[in-house]
Design a protein around this nucleic acid. Structure first.
Lengths: 146, 146
DNA sequence: TATTGTTATACTCTATAACTATA
DNA sequence: TATAGTTATAGAGTATAACAATA
């Protein structure tokens, strides 16, 4: 295969990959919007199945800890989490409230139902897609957030 | 299959999809950096094979036209394009200079060689990936920029 | 009246650095 | 001395709105 046609294939497939990722993000954003919570709070909610220190949330969201303070403020203002003390007195855990758990459950149910990889692919196709994506992704980066 | 396991599959595959898209973007950004041009200029360069009005560039890059003015300024400052008059006297075309064409060629050659979908997949795998991605992407959005 | 490109300005998202209180 | 969280501030990236020239 020559360079010119490889270029076309590279462009086309890369664009479809980006489009598929965008579609996945949009579906997630749509679900968050229907539940009336900002997308970045929805991402945090997914992570907070168990109460976790703010620094851990920063690590999982791949952002600076200074970003977590206002994010936690917003989650508290919406009644989704409480700041509770950890054993170390410097540490504050973000713990889901009853409402937080309820919203998180709704969120997860919608993701399971509507995520494009579930809604548009059958079991065999999902297995094959995973195999192909695994070849495209460097192996350490296969465990990041939504 | 129950909802709980579908949730896990949805999460895992969606994350891999996002990671693969990130990887593709990073490869593109790396190539741009090696050629010493900002990523957003590299994207514009890819589009400008033929001279095009600034508004068309805004459409292709999915951004506002007010964003194109400083972008074109930067490309001119780097000697990559010139603003040339169109037939309509309101319109300015962005036309690649000799240097712009040369940088664009280098860029495309690197993309053809190093894009993950070329470097990590064989022909049959690319065909299969395209088939799967096509099912994940709404059909109008299969022609956007890098 | 609508459109092209420009300008000035404002907004969103996120990070950096300095700070407090612990350890 | 190092760490958890907070605060104030700054930067990148991008959009909105008003404008001038032209259609």
């Amino acid at each position: 295969m020559n360079t010119a046609s490889e270029l076309l294939v590279a462009r086309h497939l890369s664009q479809m990959l980006l489009a598929a990722a965008d579609r996945s993000r949009e579906e997630f954003a749509g679900i968050a919007q229907e539940l009336d919570i900002p997308v970045h709070l929805a991402r945090a909610l997914c992570i907070l199945e168990d109460a976790a220190p703010m620094t851990e949330l920063a690590t999982r969201l791949e952002c600076d800890k200074s970003y977590i303070t206002p994010l936690a403020d917003q989650m508290e203002a919406l009644g989704l989490v409480n700041r509770v003390p950890g054993q170390d007195r410097r540490t504050k855990l973000l713990a889901l409230t009853a409402r937080g758990k309820s919203v998180r459950n709704l969120l997860e149910a919608q993701i399971a139902e509507r995520s494009p990889v579930i809604a548009s692919l059958d079991e065999a196709e999902r297995v094959e897609l995973e195999r192909l994506l695994r070849k495209l992704v460097p192996h350490e980066s296969q465990a990041s957030g939504q």
